[in-house]
Design a binder for these strands. Sequence first.
DNA 1: TGCTGGCACTCGCCTGCGGTGAGTGCCAAG
DNA 2: CTTGGCACTCACCGCAGGCGAGTGCCAGCA
Lengths: 338, 338
Amino acid sequence: MLSERRLEVLRAIVQDYVGTEEPVGSKALTERHRLGVSPATVRNDMAALEEEGYIAQPHTSAGRIPTDKGYRLFVDKLAAVKPMTAPERRAIHNFLEGAVDLDDVVGRTVRLLAQLTRQVAVVQYPSLTRSTVRHVELLSLAPARVMLVLITDTGRVEQRMIDCHAPFGETSLADLRARLNSRVAGRRFADVPRLVEDLPEAFDVEDRGNVSTVLSALLETLVEENEERLMIGGTANLTRFGHDFPLTIRPVLEALEEQVVLLKLLGEAKDSGMTVRIGHENAHEGLNSTSVVSVGYGSGGEAVAKLGVVGPTRMDYPGTMGAVRAVARYVGQILAES
Amino acid sequence: MLSERRLEVLRAIVQDYVGTEEPVGSKALTERHRLGVSPATVRNDMAALEEEGYIAQPHTSAGRIPTDKGYRLFVDKLAAVKPMTAPERRAIHNFLEGAVDLDDVVGRTVRLLAQLTRQVAVVQYPSLTRSTVRHVELLSLAPARVMLVLITDTGRVEQRMIDCHAPFGETSLADLRARLNSRVAGRRFADVPRLVEDLPEAFDVEDRGNVSTVLSALLETLVEENEERLMIGGTANLTRFGHDFPLTIRPVLEALEEQVVLLKLLGEAKDSGMTVRIGHENAHEGLNSTSVVSVGYGSGGEAVAKLGVVGPTRMDYPGTMGAVRAVARYVGQILAES
DNA sequence: TGCTGGCACTCGCCTGCGGTGAGTGCCAAG
DNA sequence: CTTGGCACTCACCGCAGGCGAGTGCCAGCA
């Protein structure tokens, strides 16, 4: 177990390195922090910390930089989430409040988060699977062609074209629309399959095929998890990444383009509370030199989706975590209001 | 006026520089191209070309690189759009054909374009203003709350929440829905205002206020040009930009994040035919070291939106233009089919 | 046992220096 | 108008030396 002072030294190293982006040495440490001991002592502590794998030196006779393990310890034990100041909170609220629809909410959130953290922001659209149905609309576009429009309580709209085997009469369609809505409106997605199971039986034989087609399209839309969308922003902040650019930045940009990767990334995070994945803790190789801070957000008490930021492992964790948490809270509020 | 050979020299310079990314000298030119003259002659020609502002040297005693003006002459007079090969065309078609909805079409297009050109691709969603109405749906969510859903012939869906002053009866709403659709379905957006002008008169006095509210919401949705969305992809290709990275890439990333900037960028392009904006021809400062190749695409003969790529001024213009044109054509086809 | 000051050592970074070579401009001759 | 020749420029490369931040180790002291 590390002594109290050694933890203090580690904290100082992380803070200084995050600030200066340069390896930090024993002398500089004692000057900038009131550790109450001499550089020589600090050197001994550093040697111990290095032995344990919390810090490393890029080359002999240079200062130390924290390792992923060092950051991990810092985040778990040494850092407190930095709360936003009152003016910041007000600014967040004002900025989000002006949103006119869901796209706008997500767009504003991503811009806000990128600006606050000066990092790349990722915001997942409120997920379908946990929300409830507000309305299902069926439109006849051609005799044997129906458009299904699904409206959720989060304001999201999903549409889908359905080709029927046989012409679908306007009255039957209206009938189906009415029955469908009376059964599923206000219900959770997960409950829908059970609720519509016996619907075809209520129809004439000649319509049952079409009804089933429509219902299965509806169910597909509901479970289609890969339809989950997200928005990213603040990629320009990647330029502040480090000196040895092209090599570091390229895989990150590539990873960010793959929605699948990002969704998995956010999905891996714990459902409640904040998750911080540091460097190699990220499964995706391209993100091995980045840290991901993510958290769930939702309109009620429950999380319906996640958001987070991607930045260099060398990031201001307390500040970033504070910003992420605050933004998640306010987005939840905004969604609950609308 | 420049002599035939000098134009030939300029073409050779552009081609070599695009290939090697290094200033090209007189000797290398005569070796790689069959100009039929000696290096000394080429030197004279180069001096003349520099005098006219078509090429420049980064520093004394280095080779020449084309200026924006040089590239301009190259694309206007010296380069032919390189047609795609048959296998490439097949690949494009196959790749786009699997799309299941509009989002997917746009997503596939942007990925395809980025991959083909190895540059940043930008695809605008089919624009509302030029398309036609397929269906208007009105849903009563609460007594005095209506959701308007607008479906276009390009498969795009726009929704909007409307707060009414007074409760809007279900039957009146159904009436409005029916009348509205009979008037505007299949009509162009531009014609809608004229077509619905006298609609309120057909309703009872107590409903007129609500009808007007709904209609003005519809009209707003129609003209709301800033609702235009677009998708970008291939940002990882920015890493191939040049050596002096951070400075070049940052403003480009920033510009790409501003949808407004991009929409304006595409909007400036000619309606038909391909547009190439080179370096400082781009109004936005951040894109002064990039070229933008854009073209309209559409489901019928008419363009409904634009797409294009953003890359370094030092790009393979014939190849890029060929790819952009081919992709635009096939997207048009796909949209027409669906 | 743990902290401290001292000391020799390492090694990345900066600077200055000459050599090299690609590329240029100019000129006189064909 | 083209061409070969020639002197000149200047970015780039490699090398050596000095500087300095930072380290590890050790002996002395509380």
